[in-house]
C-alpha cells in the first residue's frame, strides 16, 4: 500500500514535470494523461473508487482526446516556437 502510494506519486510528479518541460505539445499532452492515470490509481488507494473511475475515464481519456482533436484541427507546428517564443518582451 505504502509502496504503491509512493510509486503512484512519483509517476505523477515525473509526468507533470514532463508535461511542463517537453517541447512537443502532443508529448506534453500524453504526459498530462499519465498524470491523470497515476492520479486515478492514487484515488483508488485513498479509498475513493468512484472518483478514481471518473478520473480514469474523464481525465486520462476524454480530455486528452478533446485536446488532441483541437490540436489536429489547429495544425500545431513545433517550429513556430523558435520563431515567436522569445520575443514576448516586445
Amino acid at each position: 500500500m505504502t509502496l504503491l502510494v509512493l510509486g503512484a506519486v512519483a509517476v505523477m510528479l515525473i509526468a507533470a514535470l514532463a508535461a511542463l518541460l517537453l517541447p512537443d505539445l502532443l508529448g506534453a499532452l500524453a504526459a498530462a494523461s499519465v498524470v491523470s492515470l497515476a492520479l486515478a490509481v492514487l484515488f483508488a488507494l485513498l479509498g475513493a473508487p468512484d472518483v478514481a473511475l471518473a478520473e480514469a475515464v474523464v481525465g486520462s481519456g476524454l480530455s486528452g482526446v478533446m485536446f488532441a482533436m483541437v490540436l489536429r484541427r489547429v495544425g500545431y507546428q513545433p517550429a513556430d516556437e523558435e520563431e515567436t517564443g522569445h520575443d514576448d518582451a516586445a
Binding site: 507533470a16 498524470v35 485513498l46 472518483v51 481525465g59 480530455s63 485536446f67 500545431y76 514576448d88
Partner: peptide, 28 residues
C-alpha cells in the same frame, strides 16, 4: 506558456492537484 493550448494543459494540471488535495483530506 506562449501557446494557448499549453496554458490550458497547465489548467488541467492545477485542477488535478486540487482534486488530489481534497480527496486526501477525507482519507483516514
Amino acid at each position: 506558456s506562449h501557446y494557448l493550448l499549453r496554458a490550458l494543459l497547465g489548467l488541467t494540471l492545477m485542477e488535478a492537484g486540487v482534486n488530489l488535495f481534497l480527496v486526501s483530506v477525507g482519507y483516514r
